[in-house]
């Protein structure tokens, strides 16, 4: 329950929030220490596995060499050239794909006949592993950024379409009945009830889609490209520079986590009513 005056309510909220935060902070201090310990242990296993000769360095390199590679990759500025390609492809594929996916998902939820006609085709495309289309996309759109954007788009589009469509159909039946009884037109019902009701589900789709957009861009680059993180992974593995491959994997994971974090932030801002 909220406190009795709105100003007090805000204060009370602030108090409980800060209490919750400090509690969270104290638990997460322990958690963070343990996490750090786990990371150190992991690196140590890696390091000594090579040092003591259990695994040849040729296969897994070493933590030191990977760190050294990363340092040179970043300090030499090479990372930014690759980043500009991979990030551009990811964001383009993500934004075009998610807008198209959300709009189509909403349209299909509204026009049920179209949905019934198209649904077998959509499930067919959706069932197809889109990555298998990558060579075709490269044939059609060349080895530049376009083919990667198309691949990312094809992944993002279906994920957001399916999530949006499911969300737009799941409107609570009591709320739909209330809207009808209140005299809402079908347009009003759609804009004021169905659409807002679908937003959490759309966001779940977007979070997943962001990761898949990166996947599409990287896989496309791995097949044929001149720049980008995916292309560098292929290059370093073909030249047996495992430290380079590991270094790029660290870069990719970091970027992916950052992307996901941005999505969570946006979600929290937009869905404040969802406690």
């Amino acid at each position: 329950m909220v406190a009795s005056k709105s100003s007090t309510a805000n204060r009370a909220d602030a108090v409980t929030a800060s209490q919750a935060e400090s509690k969270k902070a104290s638990t997460s201090l322990l958690v963070w220490t343990l996490r750090l310990g786990f990371l150190v242990a992991l690196l140590a296993v890696w390091h000594y596995a090579v040092q003591w000769g259990y695994v040849p360095e040729f296969y897994i390199s070493t933590p030191t060499k990977t760190a050294l590679f990363l340092w040179k990759y970043i300090a030499g500025g090479e990372i930014f050239v690759d980043a500009s390609y991979t990030i551009y492809e990811t964001l383009m594929g993500f934004s075009i794909g998610s807008v198209a996916g959300i709009v189509s998902g909403l349209l299909l939820a509204r026009f049920t006949t179209a949905d019934r006609v198209l649904s077998p085709f959509l499930s067919g495309f959706n069932a197809l592993p889109r990555v298998a289309l990558a060579p075709l996309f490269i044939l059609w759109f060349g080895i530049g950024t376009e083919s990667k954007i198309v691949l990312a788009f094809s992944l993002v589009f279906f994920i957001t379409l399916v999530n949006t469509n499911a969300g737009a159909r799941a409107t609570d039946s009591d709320i739909m009945m209330m809207a009808r009884a209140m005299g809402a037109t079908s347009r009003q019902t759609y804009l004021k009830v169905v659409l807002p009701y679908a937003i959490p589900s759309i966001f779940a789709g977007l979070r997943l889609a962001a990761v898949y957009a990166l996947l599409g861009a990287v896989v496309g680059e791995m097949l044929a490209a001149q720049h980008g993180w995916g292309r560098q992974i292929t290059y370093y593995s073909q030249t047996f520079e495992v430290a380079g491959v590991f270094g790029l994997l660290v870069v990719l994971a970091t970027f992916s986590i950052g992307l996901n974090y941005l999505m969570v932030l946006a979600e929290q801002r937009l869905l404040r009513w969802k406690q």
Binding site: D174, I175, M177, M178, A181, M182, K192, L271, W273
Partner: peptide, 19 residues
Amino acid sequence: GPSRSMGYMFARDALLPWR
């Protein structure tokens, strides 16, 4: 169909959670 001059209420509040 539902008339705009009628007010309907049922056991579930059916409030819009985002409002």
